[in-house]
């Protein structure tokens, strides 16, 4: 049971529903359109009909036949999970350090993390590629993930959440004799499940949607990621819209699943904070 502390009535509430519903519809419409089109034969896609007249699974069959979608999804998923976990770990450790202690150079480190935000990937791509080739990491998940294991966005977002954490609890834990790592794992993190989970979703999706870097690292289609697979339907000899949309629908399912799992964490934590 949830308790709603404040219940607004009347126009505000209606305005709330109206606004959120409107934005939801706007967000969903292109997606609905995509899903509908994935079930249409090519001529119907070309002729802009809204609802499918002849529902077909042909696009899905074609998509699966033309590219090794399942292995691509597994690969993307693996990269996404590794990168997300990596960024969360480095981010949590760094944010913890920056919020728990005052120490010489704190500002400098914070600055160093922030500055990486400003670095365009075009500036780092080639040198990093050369490095990875020399490490023999082409065509591997490690190659996709390794240069992205620390993320300024993760650190700074977590910094905000950690900062909101009462310092008195650190003190209390310290008095109890817990070392700093134990405090982090047993006291801080359990209370930050919500923010960490929502950040995790975002980090995962970022990696999932990555295209250029994985393409550079990949040397065979069997080792390609989902985004590379999707782009294979677009070419100068003619774009294959049906299979592209069908593949895109299939490729969204795993993240949707992950989103729902993590979403539960987030909502739970919000609910809890509501109830206290």
């Amino acid at each position: 049971m949830e308790t709603q502390v404040l219940v607004y009535r009347g126009p505000v509430r209606w305005a709330g529903h109206a606004l959120l519903a409107a934005v939801s519809v706007l967000s969903l419409f292109p997606l609905v359109w995509m899903v509908l089109n994935a079930f249409k034969p090519t001529d119907e896609i070309l002729y802009f009909s809204l609802l499918p007249q002849n529902v077909t699974l042909q696009n899905f069959a074609d998509a699966l036949e033309m590219i090794p979608l399942p292995t691509m999804i597994v690969r993307s998923f693996a990269s996404g999970v590794f990168q997300m976990v990596g960024q969360l770990c480095t981010g949590i450790l760094a944010a913890y350090a920056l919020t728990r202690w005052d120490f010489p150079g704190k500002k400098l480190f914070y600055g160093l993390f922030t500055v990486t935000w400003l670095v365009p990937f075009q500036a780092t791509m080639l040198p990093n590629y050369v490095n990875l080739v020399q490490l023999g990491l082409r065509d591997t998940v490690a190659g996709i993930v390794l240069p992205n294991l620390a993320s300024a966005f993760a650190i700074l977002t977590l910094y905000q959440s950690f900062n909101a954490f009462p310092k008195t609890i650190f003190e209390a834990a310290q008095v109890d004799g817990a070392n700093s790592l134990k405090t982090l794992l047993q006291v801080v993190l359990p209370n930050l499940k919500g923010p960490v989970a929502s950040l995790g979703i975002i980090l995962f999706i970022n990696c999932w949607n990555e295209y250029f870097w994985p393409l550079l690292i990949t040397r065979s289609i069997d080792k390609a990621t989902v985004q590379i697979g999707l782009s294979m339907f677009l070419s100068s000899e003619g774009n294959l819209w049906g299979p592209l949309l069908a593949a895109a629908v299939l490729a969204s399912l795993p993240i949707l699943l992950l989103y729902m799992v993590l979403q539960k964490q987030i909502i739970d934590s919000f609910m809890k904070s509501g109830i206290k």
């Binding site: 967000s27 292109p30 995509m34 949607n209 985004q227 895109a248 490729a251 989103y259």
Partner: peptide
């Protein structure tokens, strides 16, 4: 939901 949609799509 738009976040989870592949950019190409």
């Amino acid at each position: 939901v738009p976040m989870i949609l592949a950019p190409v799509a």
